[in-house]
């Protein structure tokens, strides 16, 4: 009898710990909305989301340039990072001899473990410098002077592309490896080359996993903060070139939180709300994609 009670108690404790994540998500959402929503109500949802001017100390709050900036650097990172990541994953899964993968795999892990501040410093000092030199030497006549300063969507995208590599590589590799061996053997037996087998059989079969990798990489790029503020230039303006400096939503919060007061703080929490909603939407998308993948196979 006593034992049974104990068992029940343990189960309840475990149930509670299982719900901790859910509780925290609700708390995070709750707190950010509580702190930020009053400002959105005051400014007006449309003015806040679509406003092009951000002068928080004068009470002007429009985050449209930051929304555009966030998506610009994220897509830039995906365009640069996904092909390299997926190619590396294929390389690791299909081509790399064990001795080589013994070097590449820990390298990928280490890449994942390097703090974003280190990437930021690297980008600020090295990548931006190289970009600025290229812009001023080869593109000087094409670009406006404001776009020849290194700080840009492009430099942020390059740094973010490096940062999402491990996510893209690991998940794509898992997806490619989980394609049943028979698929590959059948294709090879039919006389297809290795490469034909890879892009006609393996990649299509692993596509839902690869898409999941892209979505997760996108999440990481959207959410990255410290590295981006160090390289992107943080100018509040709608970018019209990949050489334009931009500010992201995460950057907006991190840059101004230290000194903000009153409505300004609330506006930064409101920026957090927008970010929270974007991430939740992305998560739902990822769940749907994953489910579809399961349904098909």
């Amino acid at each position: 009898m006593n034992d049974k009670l104990k068992e029940k108690a343990y189960e309840k404790i475990l149930l509670v710990s299982a719900f901790v994540s859910v509780i925290i998500i609700i708390l995070i959402g709750g707190f950010i909305f509580k702190e930020g929503l009053p400002l959105i109500n005051k400014v007006g949802l449309f003015e806040f989301l679509l406003g092009k001017e951000w002068h928080p100390t004068d009470g002007v709050f429009g985050i449209f340039p930051m929304i555009v900036g966030t998506f610009a650097v994220t897509f830039g990172a995906l365009i640069l990072g996904v092909p390299l990541g997926v190619a590396t994953a294929i390389f690791l899964a299909e081509f790399a001899p064990p001795r080589v993968s013994r070097i590449v795999r820990p390298a990928v892990e280490l890449l994942a473990g390097i703090p974003s501040v280190v990437y930021g410093l690297f980008g600020m000092v090295i990548v931006n410098q190289i970009l600025m030199t290229i812009e001023r030497t080869y593109l000087a006549n094409i670009l406006r002077p404001e776009y020849q300063r290194g700080y840009s969507i492009l430099s942020a995208s390059i740094i973010l592309a490096i940062m999402i590599l491990p996510t893209v590589i690991n998940i794509s590799e898992d997806a490619i490896r989980s394609v049943p061996r028979e698929f590959k053997e059948a294709s090879l037996a039919l006389g297809a080359t290795e490469w034909q087998t890879i892009y006609k059989v393996l990649i299509p079969a692993a596509s839902s996993g690869i898409i999941a990798a892209v979505v997760l990489g996108m999440g990481r790029a959207l959410g990255e903060t410290m590295a981006v503020i160090m390289v992107a230039g943080n100018t509040v303006a709608i970018p019209d070139s990949i050489f334009a400096p931009v500010r992201t939503l995460t950057g907006n919060i991190a840059i101004e939180m230290g000194y903000a007061a009153g409505d300004h703080v609330k506006a930064l929490f409101a920026t957090g709300i927008v970010l929270f909603i974007i991430i939740m939407a992305l998560n739902t998308l990822a769940t749907v994609v994953a489910k579809r993948g399961v349904g098909r196979s």
Binding site: E146, R149, Y151, I229, G233, N234, T235, V236, A237, P245, R247, A254, I255, E256, G258
Partner: peptide, 8 residues
Amino acid sequence: VASAIVQN
């Protein structure tokens, strides 16, 4: 100036 680089 609005086009300035902003650093924190």
